[in-house]
Amino acid sequence: MTPRPPAPVPRAAVAWGLLYAAVQSAWAVTGTTVPLTPEVAYPPAAQFLLAAFALVAAVACAAVTRPLRHRARVAATAVLAAALPVFAAGALSLPVHLVTLLSGAGVESATGLACVLLDAAGAAVLAHGLTTGLRRLRGRCARCGRAHPHAGGGPLTHPGPSTATRRTRTAAALLLCGVLPWAGVKTIWTLGGDALGVTAERWHAANAGASGAARALASVGVDVTVLAALLAVVLTLGLLHRWGTVFPRWTPLVAGQRVPRTLPLVPAWAVGTGLAAYGSLLVVYASLRALGVLPSAASPDGFTRAGLTWMILFGGLAFAGLGYGLLLSARSYAARTRPACAPPPAPVAGGPGRAVVRP
């Protein structure tokens, strides 16, 4: 019998489902505006549907951790497979909200941000449940995902620090190079140069409403969105190298200890998925715009039509490069840090004070 995952997982799934259903239902009943896109809000019917779906998915997530018949386990896993893309899609705009917050521009919609955070939390919990369900359907250990001969129950053993393969590091480096054109253009503007037909004066005028922190960074040639991209680059490098698996010496209290694998993996999966999807859409849009398949909209902030197309393409390459780089490095990190179940302790024979451990 395979060991069950830790008890907090099903409890967290049920707690998330109840909270999500309560919040969405309250918004629907009170007529609170929750933006789906900047121009479109969630209709109340969709909010009630999402609330019901969250409850069903939460029950399925808790059920896959229990002893079930094969058909029931297949049904619960199928529910999770259908629910995960729904709530993951609702969390795709999480990177945009994070960049907005880091820039000091404030929150455009508190309900929109709350909805995205709830979707992101749900996607994380449901992904764990789906992984558990798939492992059990394949006859593998629910905790470590391996087909070990023993029944499990022993402690989890974690592999030592390691570095990703050279092929993975090279592929991630090439993906991260997609940031260079976009970051280069923005740096030129912040340093007072002209690029893509837009002068530095026009660029600064268009961003006059930015926060004080953003203006202070721009005064020394640092664009706040480029700084946010650098944070994603650092996270990617940490996932690829040994120093991302052990806390460094200068870290108080936890120096030299193993980094909990979910600490970098959760933001990498969440942010990487959103950036990859958004960047891919921008690349497709810019390509269709350049080919004349899509009409060229009005060019704001002094951009020429060609200049705006190039900037959209540069942004798409940057976001897609960061997103796919994060996903690739997270996949490598997850495989390299994946724990294994140790064999259970050997049975003990003998009376009190005379216990003998059998080999």
Score class of each variant (00 low, 15 high):
89 A>K: 15
104 G>Q: 10
119 D>S: 13
113 L>M: 00
161 P>N: 05
93 S>N: 15
51 A>C: 05
112 G>P: 15
140 R>H: 04
167 R>H: 12
121 A>C: 07
147 A>K: 13
141 C>M: 09
162 S>T: 01
67 P>Y: 01
69 R>G: 06
70 H>Y: 07
112 G>N: 14
151 A>R: 14
65 T>S: 07
75 A>K: 13
53 F>L: 09
128 H>R: 15
123 A>M: 04
159 P>N: 00
87 F>S: 11
111 T>G: 07
113 L>D: 08
66 R>S: 04
145 G>C: 04
50 L>Q: 12
148 H>Y: 08
111 T>R: 15
79 V>A: 12
94 L>F: 08
166 R>N: 03
119 D>A: 12
105 A>F: 15
105 A>W: 09
121 A>E: 00
138 R>E: 02
162 S>F: 13
63 A>H: 02
105 A>R: 15
78 A>I: 11
110 A>G: 14
163 T>E: 10
85 P>C: 04
117 L>K: 05
70 H>E: 00
99 V>W: 12
158 H>Q: 08
53 F>P: 03
129 G>W: 15
94 L>R: 13
129 G>H: 10
137 L>E: 00
146 R>G: 03
148 H>D: 10
117 L>F: 05
60 A>T: 03
62 A>Y: 04
109 S>Y: 10
73 R>P: 03
113 L>K: 12
104 G>L: 07
86 V>I: 12
80 L>T: 07
70 H>K: 11
77 T>D: 03
102 L>N: 15
93 S>L: 09
120 A>W: 11
161 P>T: 03
136 R>V: 00
146 R>Q: 04
122 G>M: 09
80 L>M: 08
128 H>N: 08
61 C>N: 11
144 C>N: 10
158 H>A: 04
89 A>T: 02
123 A>N: 01
87 F>P: 13
96 V>G: 14
131 T>M: 00
102 L>C: 13
165 T>V: 01
159 P>R: 14
76 A>K: 15
151 A>L: 14
107 V>R: 09
65 T>E: 05
89 A>I: 02
65 T>Y: 15
122 G>N: 06
